[in-house]
Design a protein around this nucleic acid. Structure first.
Length: 585
RNA sequence: CGGGACGUGGCUCAGCCUGGUAGAGCGCUGCACUGGGGGUGCAGAGGUCGCAAGUUCAAAUCUUGUCGUCCCGACCA
């Protein structure tokens, strides 16, 4: 491709509303343009990358036994009502209405396709003989994000590869899951993207039923916790802390806690400043409203929610998923102010475990505090010298908080560290959630009906592109891995008005192109420095310079994007040289 | 959805506080020079100052509302 014949609008200045490197670089390199918040055009150069990533995904899906299909983006809302996800998605689901004659039709724009494909399978698959099968598509997904951000990393409309496996047994599910897991590893490897597979929230199946693939990046929205000593890695939502229960013995002759005035200090930060005390010596007491019962039964509306206090160390964060599991609760939310005032007799911010009038659960680390500061259940007052197990009862502790750096590893004697990550893929053992609600069943050998056992597997294709830019760049611009680069070679004739330069450049362009190498020739009438800057910005792996001093000596100058110095290669051997370094890469 | 910031030519921004002629650099068009890291000169084009209402003799500037964009947080199968 000749630069003058395509459309690559580069920018010298950083657009003011782009904050993270991938967003800035994708705009500056002319890969994307914004239409509105959360919606971007992929420009010719950017779309070539999307297609290269898609092709890698496709090849690996096929290799893993998947078959490709293509489903509609508009979907009847009724399917989401049947699976209960109309409510679960809430505002994230794009609803749309259309008139046909005098009927008002209700649609959703597909945020994902579990409903559509399960509906399809429920009609077409009847026998264990048709199973297992894994189907996938690469298609635009629509989610009305509350806050789209970071360019193409989080948008309301994005390109996703979604795959769904259907099996007659847990074993078939596990085989499909493992095949997808391995395919994902190959995909990210081939894309040149560093990745960490992490354990993720796994829902009803439990165990190792879900992994996310995280690309480590400072601007990632997710927190990954990983062990420095072993392979353990998990989403922070999910990570175990490796702490174990230890119940402190009651101290018999302990002094009573002392009440101190803490006027208007309702946060740990305020109180720790006021008392010059380390937040790690506080017991944070959060009051939750908890509903028990089966989440799928709507009858639990009648059971009034219970109030439970959750105790964690002052510098720790409660992990609601862990609390929910520890309590066997189906629903959990922070209690409202009125409930808290009624319970503790104090406004929010002054709750504590001593004398509190409700059940409570404590995190392991609470038991390890020798002498704690807690709320006094009284306005503008805290207690100091509170000894867990002595001043309030403590017979068991749980893992209730987010793991943080320096926590012990749950698997080995190493310690944990946290890194930011971009979630680029997710594999998930669904089980029978959708097959049951949409009646996708099969008959086994004994003519017994069973719901089909499903898995789902997603890769955010457009997000992968952004993640690659986010992790592969330097001060000058993008550094594309060869596998996904929009073109492999940038050919730069230094002066397009020089006849010898252009004759030579055109010959090399033709020869490389004929050999199947993607070449972009910068045939714009610009000065060399201008072209070099743009070349660094758009980041093609190989740069070939024709003209000037080099040409006079009979040489082309060839340089990898990652090299600092060019290599002089005789014009006649330039194409061979390029072919060699390209195939070696 | 809570909190914050910003909307002035295609891009980056100044002007606003203290009301009175709309500016700079880059980019764009033409010509000339130049030709190895975003060059130089000359001549041009291009702006309802996001939109609306209000105050005023007069509003980019003050007030109110509204829309848009970005950031932090909550949320995210």
């Amino acid at each position: 491709m000749r630069w003058s014949q395509t459309f690559i609008p580069t920018m010298k200045e950083v657009p003011s509303d782009a904050e993270v490197p991938s967003h800035q670089l994708m705009l500056r390199a002319g890969l994307i343009r914004q239409l509105m918040a959360g919606a971007y055009t992929f420009m010719p150069l950017g779309y070539r990358v999307v297609r290269k990533v898609s092709q890698i995904v496709r090849e690996e899906m096929d290799r893993a036994g998947g078959v490709e299909l293509f489903m509609p983006a508009i979907q009847p809302i009724e399917l989401f009502e049947r699976t209960g996800r109309k409510e679960a998605f809430g505002n994230v689901l794009f609803n749309l209405e259309a008139k046909r004659g005098d009927r008002n039709l209700q649609f959703a724009l597909g945020p994902t396709h579990e409903e559509v494909i399960t509906d399809l399978v429920s009609r077409e698959i009847k026998s264990y003989k048709q199973l297992p099968i894994t189907m996938y598509q690469i298609q635009t997904k629509f989610r009305n994000e509350e806050r789209p951000r970071f360019g193409v990393l989080r948008t309301s409309e994005f390109l996703m590869k979604d795959a769904y496996s259907f099996g007659a047994s847990i074993q078939q599910l596990n085989e499909a899951y493992d095949a997808m897991y391995n395919a994902y590893c190959r995909i990210f490897e081939r894309c040149g993207l560093e990745y960490i597979p992490v354990e993720a929230e796994s829902g009803p199946i439990g165990g190792d039923a879900s992994h996310e693939f995280m690309a480590p990046a400072d601007n990632g929205e997710d927190f990954v916790v990983r062990c420095s000593g072993c392979e353990y890695a998990a989403n922070q939502e999910r990570a175990d802390t490796g702490r174990s229960s230890s119940i402190p013995p009651a101290v018999n002759d302990a002094a009573d806690p002392r009440k101190v005035d803490t006027p208007r200090a309702g946060t740990i930060e305020d109180v720790s400043k006021m008392l010059s005390a380390d937040p790690a010596t506080f017991i944070k007491t959060l009051i939750y409203s908890v509903s028990n019962g089966d989440p799928d039964e709507s009858s639990d509306e009648n059971i009034p929610p219970k109030t439970v206090a959750v105790l964690v160390r002052g510098d720790h964060e409660v992990n609601e998923g862990k609390v929910r599991r520890a309590l066997g609760a189906s629903r959990l939310e922070l209690a409202n102010e009125a409930t808290i005032e009624e319970l503790t007799g104090a406004p929010v911010g002054f709750a504590g475990p001593v004398g509190i009038q409700c059940d409570y659960v404590a995190d392991h680390d609470v038991a390890l505090i020798k002498s704690a500061i807690t709320g006094a259940n009284e306005k503008d007052a805290h207690l100091t010298g509170v000894i867990p197990g002595t001043h309030f009862e403590l017979t068991e502790t749980h893992d209730l908080r987010n793991a943080i750096a320096d926590d012990p590893c749950p698997r080995c004697d190493g310690t944990l560290e946290t890194v930011h990550g971009i979630e680029v893929g997710h594999v998930f053992k669904l089980g029978t959630k959708y097959s049951e609600s949409l009646n996708a069943v099969f008959l086994d050998r004994e003519e017994q009906k069973h719901p089909i056992i499903m898995g789902c597997y997603g890769i955010g294709v457009s997000r992968v592109v952004a993640a690659i830019v986010e992790t592969c760049h330097d001060d000058g611009g993008i550094i594309w891995p060869e596998s996904v680069a929009p073109y492999t070679v940038e050919l730069i004739p230094l002066n397009i008005k020089d006849e010898e330069t252009m004759t030579t450049a055109n010959r090399i362009y033709d020869e490389l192109s004929a050999g199947g190498i993607d070449v972009l020739m910068d045939d714009r009438d610009q000065r060399p420095g201008f072209k070099f800057k743009d070349a660094d910005l758009i980041g093609l792996p190989v740069r070939v310079i024709i003209g000037g001093k080099g040409l006079k000596e009979g040489n082309a100058e060839i340089k990898l994007r990652t090299d600092s110095q060019a290599t002089k290669v005789p014009i006649g051997e330039a194409c061979d040289y390029v072919r060699r370094i390209v195939s070696a890469g």
